[in-house]
Design a protein around this nucleic acid. Structure first.
Length: 258
DNA sequence: ATGGTGGGGAACCCA
């Protein structure tokens, strides 16, 4: 089974690329972030024709998450217990959705951006991650994938130039500690060991031709419970998907599960 | 310090 995650930066504007990506890599489950589509604008007929069902959450214009699956979607849960804003579709249900696909519990996560370190959104981001950690701990005992855009670059090598982020979010010690806490609990990075450097980035800003100059960041991750990690046979970042006109600013990340 | 490029949706907000 192949599981992928992709911040598409608008599903409807990217639909042709999404369909080609699914076919090119024979993807069974694709989690999406920044779908930017209301539920009444989904599903999309082309995806159904390819055999994918969709579970989506989010109603506002800039977030939105979804799970596409051709191996079933069961026990869909919008948001996680304790999530700030849980039960408020406008506020934050657009940031997390979970479903069981082909026997694996898959979460599509869009971790809050944080904006600036002195912004209330930064505090909110850390709180959101703490609540996710608490919710995710019991899931370690079953096949679980925490996929998505974490909006954190966990290591210096995950940023093209640390000096450029001296006073920025995504690299601060509290954010990195929040990410590392999942690994401390037993979650495993399913991609990094199988796709070793130097091509580690998953995101390149649209500004200043950052992709063409390979000035990117690693923000998109698939973390797995130990039992799922034991089933991984390969993983890669589809960086070519970031090339050319009409690309998302994020590349998809793919994990093969035996 | 600022502004650069995209997407949504029709004026700004968000990344």
């Amino acid at each position: 089974m192949r599981i992928a995650t992709w911040n598409v930066n608008s599903l409807r504007s990217r639909i042709d690329r999404v369909e080609k990506f699914l076919e090119r890599h024979d993807i069974d489950v694709l989690t999406l972030q920044e779908t930017k589509a209301r539920e009444d604008q989904l599903p999309l007929m082309g995806l159904q024709a390819l055999g994918y069902d969709i579970a989506a959450a989010g109603t506002n214009q800039w977030n939105g998450v979804a799970v596409l699956s051709r191996v079933g979607i069961e026990d869909v849960q919008v948001g996680f217990e304790g999530m700030p804003g849980w039960g408020d579709p406008i506020a934050d249900e657009s940031r997390a959705i979970g479903a069981t696909c082909g026997g694996v519990r898959v979460w599509s996560l869009y971790v809050p951006n944080g904006r600036k370190v002195d912004d209330p959104h930064y505090v909110y981001k850390l709180d959101w991650l703490a609540k996710l950690r608490a919710a995710a701990r019991p899931w370690l005992g079953v096949d679980t994938a925490l996929t998505g855009d974490w909006n954190i670059a966990p290591m210096d090598e995950d940023v093209f130039d640390m000096a450029a982020f001296a006073k920025s979010t995504h690299v601060t010690p509290p954010e990195r500690e929040a990410f590392a806490a999942f690994l401390d609990d037993g979650y495993v990075d399913l991609v990094r060991p199988h796709a070793p450097g130097p091509e580690v980035f998953t995101y390149w800003d649209y500004y200043r031709q950052r992709y063409e100059r390979n000035r990117g960041m690693r923000l998109d991750f698939v973390l797995g419970s130990p039992s799922l990690a034991a089933r991984v046979t390969s993983a890669f970042i589809d960086r070519d998907e970031r090339a050319g006109a009409g690309a998302s600013d994020h590349a998809p990340v793919v994990v093969e599960i035996a």
